[in-house]
Amino acid sequence: MPLIHATPATLPGAEHSSDAAICIHDLTVAYDGRPVLWDIDLDFPTGSVCGIVGPNGAGKSTLLKAILGQVATTSGRVLVHGASFDTQRRMVAYVPQRESVDWEFPVRAVDVVAMGAYPRIGWFRGVSRAVIDEARAVLDRVGMADLAMRQIGRLSGGQQQRVFLARALMQRAQVYLLDEPLASVDASTEQVILGVLAELKREGRTIIAVHHDLATASQNFDWCVLLNMRVIAAGATAHTLTEENVARTYGGRLTILSEAAEALRQAASRGVA
């Protein structure tokens, strides 16, 4: 029995709905002569929380990077609210995967959050007090107000993830692209992130998140893409992720272990608790 029912997603390209936040048409991306994404046709509906779900190596992160124009495409085009990404840059916020950053970098949480406001500030002008205050307020929104002045590498994994979400919030965008926002974060961070995403949805913004775990996707997203190099299914979660696909979760039980690991780390860096 097929796990997921294929839907005829590749219909003629002219019928792209005009209310889509992101239209992807005919997209093929290859690394080094090997296709990673094949013939992707997708419309992410405005104002929904969309999940991109698929196995490792399915091209989920590449899809986000293609939307951001960060990978060369073999064919196809991407439209953000009806125009190319280059002209709509300010409408898109991006939360990269955490591995891509140098954690020893001398920068505080609040500075990182303020980076989200850089496009608004423009070149040559400094970061004003007002922006810093706003960054603090956004940090408060993700429950990090008391850690605003901490160096970024001295935060736990979940806290770092919240900082990057806060930076995206600072961008005041219409579309939020998140790469694995819930990967290896603690339970409370997951709560905070999902809460913020729900708020954004209420404000009518679009969220597109890469998600590794089929099991939790149905709770977190109201629109889903199943991706494995090509679109296997896309649409409302209830139709794309059927009940029997939701595997037994083991995530909750391992959170205490990650907290213990954090305690070990803290002890090593601080000596006596």
């Binding site: 990269p96 891509s100 980076m115 850089y118 070149w123 400094g126 970061v127």
Partner: peptide
């Protein structure tokens, strides 16, 4: 003058390119 640009592109070039 370019403190924030220099810091951003050093800290997170991917994000800098995206914005």
């Amino acid at each position: 003058i370019l403190f924030k640009e220099l810091r951003l592109s050093a800290f997170d070039p991917g994000f800098a390119a995206a914005i």
